[in-house]
Design a binder for these strands. Structure first.
Lengths: 344, 344
DNA sequence: TTGTACGCGTTATCAA
DNA sequence: TTGATAACGCGTACAA
């Protein structure tokens, strides 16, 4: 026989379905006499009854499911975020639906449509681009949304991002204190807030020392892309003595490029990453990087989203999460080989 | 005004809801005259209509959602599996619901209950323990299930796992060929198939050379645990000259322990991991490890699950995915310092 | 080819 | 405190 339904429980307990429904829900069990509640619940237990969430959602217009869009779960920076979100969500009785977008619009739309059709109660987006029509639509459609790690240019939707400005500033100051004067930047995609903001923060931090020709941008936040664009930067007659990368994956790409050229870090080049994603403390050399609390970011994002679902009329807010510099072995003073006085 | 429903579309197109329903579904659109289909679809488009998946699922008893239980998305081995599964699922119009269990039963049950209440059409479990009542229940309840990466002792449910036996054998042979004679094993939790099978395969591969006192087991597949149990193995008067770890995280723990003791890899100890998870090629030293095709495993698992959902009566099958050894820099011949002839 | 009528399983409203 | 009844939005036999 098939899954028992509420009606079966009600019959087994000798009450009406409505009564059974009330007895089973904590919120409404107070209306029912303790004996009846007990009778219904034990009947449900012995029948192995399980509510049909679809029917409930149809009636209550709440699915207790949340969707999350991210570029690629395979990027080691995201799992802690997802884990943080999932922990907060499941603690509140919500379920997490995941979708990878590869930073492209078509998959993003596809996933979004699917999630919305399935009546998710809200959406977290970790894959927003600076100009993202998808986010606009969501906002206009009145869907509870929280942006994570990346924001769009036009606001109107709550978001939580790392303090990129401070992070980059700390990185630059660290390098300058070590004596570096020719500092380059391997930036991320300019159509993302992280790519654009970090590049801007880099320029601002350097001030007069800013050298536009020492800045390159990757089209994606991947090791391969970092490798490729860093090569052009390193393969010139007057390469930088230090590089601030827009994230750890790009930084690793820089290290790869450096190795290809037969040079080594930090002897020939200092490298700073961004995110402090898992395992970068174990790579060669252990990476100096700006730490972003991924787990916290995911957790708080979920909490913000749940709060927004409870109180849809509260204004959007954007939270800036503190970052700090973790100094490891990929940064060191410039040597005479690459120092400013060399000028071959 | 609220979300338009089918009725609104029907009215806008001047037809009955039933007609609108048929016109909107590709499967049934053939029953409807082309003009009507066009009229209905354009009405739907201009109204911004979106089916209510809950109502549809309630009626069709298919949610097009799949649940996946895993120990911890933060363990770098799992993201590729999840990505593979998600890609296959979304290609088939399914949605992925995620749950982290931390290898504990209570969270597993909680997530499972939530997923089942939400009427998922099937479940993938990457967190099974050897004796897992949760899996038994699922099987007995007739829920379509596929086990990934780990299996239970009692079968009856389809599964896909790496060929651990061959992988371990390749690792051991590689070390023996290098000249190692005192080879130890840092095993995983014995209540998981991966922990138990790899330990067994290790013993079998070594045959007469097997030394039970050179085997320790971690209670969890984490770097910390590996660090801890490896210390006891390395901190003895006659430590092994090589260690096969049950997975990469444990292997990294071994490297940590080695560093604590002031020794280095591969000079004082060769280490082989398992999984070839992302970034282990960049750690110090680049890790020799048994490669498991995580993405493929996730993709195929999803495909198997979908097949099972289509044909619930087909018998359970278990797929063994080929593994191979990736030799990098964490393995080398034993030196006189730690070689078999030393015997202090 | 289209319309009628009903049910999927639950909760909310109203009445008793 | 409990029961009767009507939705929630959709798909589908069956009839026309």
């Amino acid at each position: 026989m098939r899954q028992p339904r509420l009606k079966d429980v009600a019959e087994a307990a000798g009450v009406h379905v409505a009564t059974a429904s009330r007895a089973l829900n904590d919120r409404t069990a107070g209306m029912i006499s303790p004996e009846t509640v007990a009778r219904v619940r034990s009947a449900a237990l012995s029948l192995g009854y399980r509510v049909n969430g679809m029917a409930r959602a149809l009636k209550t217009r709440r699915s207790f499911a949340i969707g999350m869009l991210l570029p690629d779960i395979t990027n080691p920076f995201f799992p802690p975020i997802v884990r943080g979100a999932e922990d907060a969500l499941s603690a509140a009785g919500f379920t997490l639906v995941l979708g990878n977008t590869d930073n492209e619009e078509e998959p993003a739309r596809r996933h979004l449509t699917g999630m919305l059709e399935r009546q998710v109660d809200g959406i977290m987006i970790a894959s927003a681009r600076r100009d993202d029509p998808v986010v606009e639509q969501l906002r206009d459609a009145g869907v509870s949304t929280v942006l994570v790690n990346r924001i769009t240019q036009r606001g109107g939707v709550s978001s939580i991002i790392p303090d990129e400005r401070v992070g980059i500033l700390l990185a630059v100051e660290h390098l300058q204190r070590l004596g570096h004067q020719r500092i380059g930047h391997v930036g991320g995609p300019r159509n993302t807030s992280s790519g654009a903001q970090r590049a801007q923060a880099f320029a601002d931090a350097l001030g007069d020392a800013y050298r536009p020709d020492l800045v390159v941008h990757a089209d994606r936040f991947t090791e391969q892309e970092g490798h490729q664009v860093a090569t052009s930067l390193l393969d010139r007659s007057d390469p930088p003595t230090a590089i601030v990368a827009a994230n750890d994956l790009l930084a690793i790409g820089v290290l790869d490029a450096l190795g290809d050229l037969g040079r080594s870090c930090p002897r020939d080049l200092s490298v700073v990453g961004f995110n402090d994603m898992p395992l970068v403390d174990h790579i060669r050399p252990p990476l100096t990087t700006v730490r972003v609390p991924g787990y916290e970011m995911g957790r708080r994002a979920a909490e913000m989203l749940l709060a927004h679902i409870e109180h849809p009329d509260r204004p959007a807010e954007t939270v800036l999460l503190a970052t700090n510099l973790v100094i490891r072995a990929s940064t060191a003073p410039p040597t005479s080989r690459n120092g400013p006085t060399t000028g071959s």
